[in-house]
Design a protein around this nucleic acid. Structure first.
Length: 620
RNA sequence: GGGGGCGUAGCUCAGUUGGUUAGAGUGACGGCCUGUCACGCCGUAGGUCGCGGGUUCGAGCCCCGUCGCUCCCGCCA
């Protein structure tokens, strides 16, 4: 006789009855069909409701909330009664159906509850500096210091989960498009252009430093030179610049991508389905503009929207009316010989006087403008008539011209931004357009409107230093005949400043999601471009020798872009601050309040790194 | 580096023209309550009004300085 079959039988028997130490189900799992089962759940005490003769405990985990109940005559009551908010408990009991009146329709588990038979305390919690239950707003400092509590809260927990799902979807979509994921170094060389670098001192090489990559820009181009054809990476990027609500201090993530043997249109065609599909997947009822996305030349964007990242949900379109104010019959002297941009404000005629004064004050104080003139158009016996402080300087015919050019109808107002400098007039008009869109409620929050901004200028005039600068990315390919480009000299200033680059941004709802370009893979053109921007050939060779050298051994034409992951998640989550979609963010002063970074280091560590700290002198 | 806003109980906030003992809600603690799900009711504890200085008979409130947080400008190829 053998014991084998008997042991197997016993094992099978025990498996049916012995419970897992912590849980048989999650807190979001049980349904009416589970009634009668004996189950074990583990989680945090979300909420405790003590009715004296009856104690409810809502147990919460990542998956959901389940109500548990215990009565005073139960042997488990004493233990359950001690539990407080955010204690971690393991509850064992039987699933019972709730009566019709006590079903909670707001919870997926609302048809049942657990009748508590055993309570095990896994972890107690002190009084909370930040309640997990509820969605009240709390101070940033508290939230960051107790990030682990904030992350338990529903909104943040959801946002971070969304972020993970977004990244997972991006990977799938990129791989499906034939891209291959590669890692690039975190410790690399300091790059002379761009933002301030984070530096890491070298122990082995005294006095020398690594830099954290601002972006894997040169690496991804080298990957193309290496023949991998299509690269992507969810790439960490590090820039030591001051923070903003939509700009994390220190570090952020990009969907970095690069492709070989492509034109600008090929890059667009590869990126559009990824972004469009991604946004559709997580839109949750919101609409996503159809691919192919609208393409707007930089110059047109600056004219029509006053910014290079227009929010196309805003229906307001700016137009130039300099010539109307230049006419002899228009007497408004303040606008003569200036660039004048007109910003229509649909329906603003019914706004009180304070609305116009407030906007004017804002333009003067925050934008440093001379002010925002305006004309209110009303119907006067079927005829459109301008009213307001400056209307009397504008004769009827000129008013009609302004109205028709700006698409004004009765009940609208028309604001004017004027400046001797074209860029300033455009900039103030652009900010006024955004403000008017918000204040007049013209922005549909349930839409994602994408566009490409294309044809950025390759160079710009630096007025302070009286020289030509790169206006965006020095590695972009100029839209110019190669031979003619190589022959350009300093004397061709106007021609040079007119050169566009194969440089483009993706914008969604007024947020710049990414910047990209068809790269300059021709060493001669690259040296020439840097020469035009005032860098001697030797300097360029010294600074970008690695990449230039690579281009001399057979470089394919290539291009790419790098949408910001954090900003994408921010848009999809409907948040206005990156900290709401980042698991462990730093504060605006680039400090991690939970971990205490940055921190002092020991004298020994400094010595090993050949570093001596010189504290800044305190102003006295 | 510069500008705006904020700083009062563990937390969210109120606090009148400068006037007696600085309040409410929430959380904590104790009591009552058998169907709640933001449970309800009663009670208790909890304060260097960010910090320092000044004006005043008297300052949470006014002034100066300072620190912290936040938003913006600069900066972010």
């Amino acid at each position: 006789m053998t014991w084998g079959p008997v042991l197997r039988h016993i094992r099978r028997f025990l498996k049916g009855y012995a419970m897992h130490a912590y849980r048989t189900h999650t807190c979001g799992q049980l349904r009416a069909s589970d009634v009668g089962s004996r189950v074990r759940l583990s989680g945090w005490v979300n909420r405790r409701r003590d009715h004296g003769g009856l104690l409810f405990i809502d147990l919460r985990d990542h998956y959901g909330i389940t109500q548990a109940v215990v009565e005073p005559d139960s042997p488990a009551f004493a233990a359950a009664d001690k539990a407080r908010s955010e204690w971690v408990l393991t509850l064992t009991g039987t699933v019972v159906a709730r009566t019709a009146e006590t079903v909670n329709k707001d919870l997926p588990t609302g048809e049942i509850e657990i009748r508590i038979e055993e309570v095990a305390v896994q972890g107690v919690a002190q009084e909370l500096p930040l309640p997990v239950f509820g969605d009240l707003d709390y101070p940033e400092e508290t939230r960051l210091k107790y990030r682990f509590l904030d992350l338990r809260r529903e909104k943040l927990h959801k946002n971070i989960t969304l972020r993970s799902n977004v990244i997972s979807s991006v990977r799938k979509r990129m791989i499906a498009q034939g891209f291959t994921e590669f890692q690039t170094p975190i410790l690399t060389a300091s790059s002379p252009e761009g933002a301030r670098d984070f530096l890491v001192p070298s122990r082995i090489h005294p006095g020398k430093f690594y830099a954290l990559p601002q972006a894997p820009q040169q690496f991804k181009q080298l990957i193309m030179v290496a023949g991998f054809d299509r690269y992507f990476q969810i790439a960490p990027c590090f820039r030591d610049e001051d923070a903003r609500a939509d700009r994390s201090p220190g570090e952020f993530y990009q969907l970095d991508l690069e492709m070989s043997f492509v034109t600008q249109d090929d890059v667009f065609a590869a990126v559009e389905p990824v972004l469009h599909g991604l946004f559709e997947e997580f839109a949750n009822g919101r609409s996503v503009s159809a691919a192919p996305f609208t393409r707007i030349a930089y110059e047109d964007s600056m004219l029509r929207y006053g910014v290079d990242k227009p929010d196309l949900r805003n229906p307001i379109v700016i137009c130039d009316v300099s010539d109307v104010f230049g006419r002899d019959d228009v007497e408004f002297k303040a606008f003569k010989n200036k660039t004048v941009r007109a910003i229509p404000a649909p329906g603003a005629a019914s706004q009180p006087r304070s609305f116009f004064d407030k906007l004017n004050d804002w333009a003067r104080s925050e934008m440093g403008a001379a002010g925002l003139g305006y004309v209110v158009f009303e119907s006067d016996g079927g005829k459109l008539t301008g009213k307001g402080p400056i209307a009397k300087f504008i004769p009827e015919a000129a008013q009609a011209e302004l109205a028709s050019r700006a698409g004004i109808k009765a009940g609208d107002a028309l604001f004017f931004s004027a400046d001797a400098k074209k860029e300033r007039a455009a900039g103030v008009a652009g900010q006024a357009r955004i403000r008017l869109g918000n204040e007049l409620g013209l922005i549909d929050k349930n839409r994602f409107e994408f566009c490409w901004i294309v044809d950025f200028p390759m160079f710009e005039w630096n007025e302070d230093e009286k020289k030509i600068d790169f206006s965006h990315n020095p590695f972009s390919m100029p839209q110019f005949d190669r031979d003619a480009f190589l022959k350009l000299t300093d004397g061709d200033k106007d021609t040079i400043l007119g050169i566009k680059a194969y440089q483009y941004d993706i914008v969604c709802n007024g947020i710049e999601l990414s910047s990209g370009a068809i790269r300059n893979h021709d060493p001669d053109v690259m040296l020439k471009a840097f020469e035009l921007a005032g860098y001697a050939r030797e300097d360029t060779e010294a600074r970008f020798g690695g990449m230039l050298n690579a281009f001399r051994y057979g470089a394919p034409p290539h291009g790419g872009t790098a949408p910001g992951i954090d900003r994408i998640v921010m848009l999809l989550a409907g948040e206005e601050n990156l900290r709401e979609v980042t698991m462990f963010p730093m504060n605006q002063q680039a400090q991690d309040l939970m971990m205490g970074a940055p921190s002092d280091v020991s004298a020994k560590q400094l010595k090993e790194l050949h570093i001596r700290v010189v504290m800044p002198e305190k102003a006295s």
